[in-house]
Design a protein around this nucleic acid. Structure first.
Length: 356
DNA sequence: TCGATTTGACCGTC
DNA sequence: GACGGTCAAATCGA
């Protein structure tokens, strides 16, 4: 078991190193022939390869995460009967003697992101969500929708999210994720690898009452519009220390060179990629808590093809300067991971509008 | 008929 | 007591 995990770990690193090589290659190509139209196809191919490589690596991490997570779940107080989880996954410190309407005081982690997307959200991030409530919030123009994982009852997945239309820009939804997916979706959801397309207003309205049963062959391409500086705001709003910074513990990308004058087009992100891979995989519950209280952002400007991945080693250093003391993880030793991979890649040109 | 959504009520936290 | 999160009965739609 440990041996295979090690093997997987090396495999993931190989994939990422390949990605790095390809990115460098692309980098060289861009700087040498930025105006050449013939190189555009090659660039796209390279980008596709890079994305593919990253996805493979992430998929492997995902797989390993699930193995680890399942183990963690088995080790914890979550009990199963006849192969299916109890309808209520009991937190170690919280005993539910009976089903109560009371708000659960489970430790929760929140990822608050601003998402410019076309739906309020049932499947736009690749997961199946079921709306279970809506509430008018004081001071907010629009009501907040409450969603939970469709597989909550079946698989005991406690992931929930809150979706609220932004007061400033009704096109923007502020989505707060609470908890992680423990259902099979977490393993099967594959981030889209194609170009992200900005969802327009009419589409938005069409999807306003997006039904979960709606058939979507591929998760709709969605776009992140991050915070004011383009950051994915990872906020531990009421998270206890044990769960702080389990989100993006050390896998951060930065794009400080990008201005924010055009936030909606600049700060876009492969939503599914974060949600399904980075967030899900790099925030395992069994990871030991980090010691840092400082903010950690994941800056990754992308149009979905991973363009504009501007990551200098100094950026990484700046962001990951706080100890990311992942002491042990069944997934991988992230310190080791970062030792092997140095993202000293500088794109010579702004490619953020590529292929939109 | 079944599953998803709506909505009023309940309850914990501040 | 106000507010926010959740529950569950009622309702809706396929």
């Amino acid at each position: 078991m440990e041996e295979s995990a090690k093997c997987e770990q090396v495999s993931v690193i190989d994939e990422l190193l390949l990605g790095k090589e390809l990115t460098k290659k692309l980098c060289d190509q861009l700087s040498s022939s930025s105006s050449s139209s013939s190189s555009c196809d090659t660039n796209e191919v390279l980008i596709e390869k890079i994305i593919s490589t990253m996805e493979k690596a992430l998929a492997k991490v995902n797989c390993m995460a699930n193995v680890g997570e399942n183990k963690a779940m088995m080790d914890s107080h979550c009990s199963f009967t006849n192969g299916s989880p109890k309808s209520e996954v009991v937190e170690p410190e919280v005993e539910h003697k009976h089903v109560s309407k009371k708000r659960k005081t489970m430790p929760r982690r929140r990822e608050q992101v601003k998402v410019c997307l076309g739906t309020e959200g049932n499947k736009e991030d690749g997961y199946n969500w079921r709306k279970y409530g809506q509430k008018d919030i004081l001071g907010a123009k629009f009501p907040r929708g409450y969603f939970r994982c469709t597989y909550r009852n079946i698989q005991g997945c406690l992931a929930t999210k809150q979706v609220q239309k932004s007061d400033e820009d009704p096109m923007i939804y502020e989505i707060t994720y609470i908890g992680r997916h423990t259902c099979t979706q977490a393993a099967t959801v594959v981030p889209p690898s194609k170009t992200k397309v900005r969802i327009q207003e009419n589409q938005h309205q069409n999807n306003e009452k997006n039904q979960p049963q709606e058939k979507i062959e591929q998760p709709p391409e969605t776009i992140f519009s991050f915070g004011p500086q383009g950051e994915v705001k990872v906020e531990d709003l009421d998270l206890d220390l044990d769960h702080k910074h389990q989100i993006f513990p050390s896998f951060c990308f930065s794009s400080p060179s990008i201005g924010s004058e055009n936030e909606e087009t600049n700060n876009i992100f492969s939503y599914s990629m974060i949600e399904n891979n980075l967030v899900e995989n790099f925030s395992p519950s069994f990871m030991s808590p980090t010691t840092s209280e400082s903010d950690m952002f994941c800056h990754w400007e992308s149009t979905g093809l991973g363009q504009n991945v501007h990551n200098s080693s100094s950026d990484i250093t700046d962001i990951v300067s706080t100890p990311t003391s992942v002491t042990y993880s069944p997934i991988m030793d992230l310190d080791f991971f970062l030792d092997k991979i140095d993202f000293d890649i500088d794109f010579p040109m702004n490619t953020r509008e590529l292929c939109i």
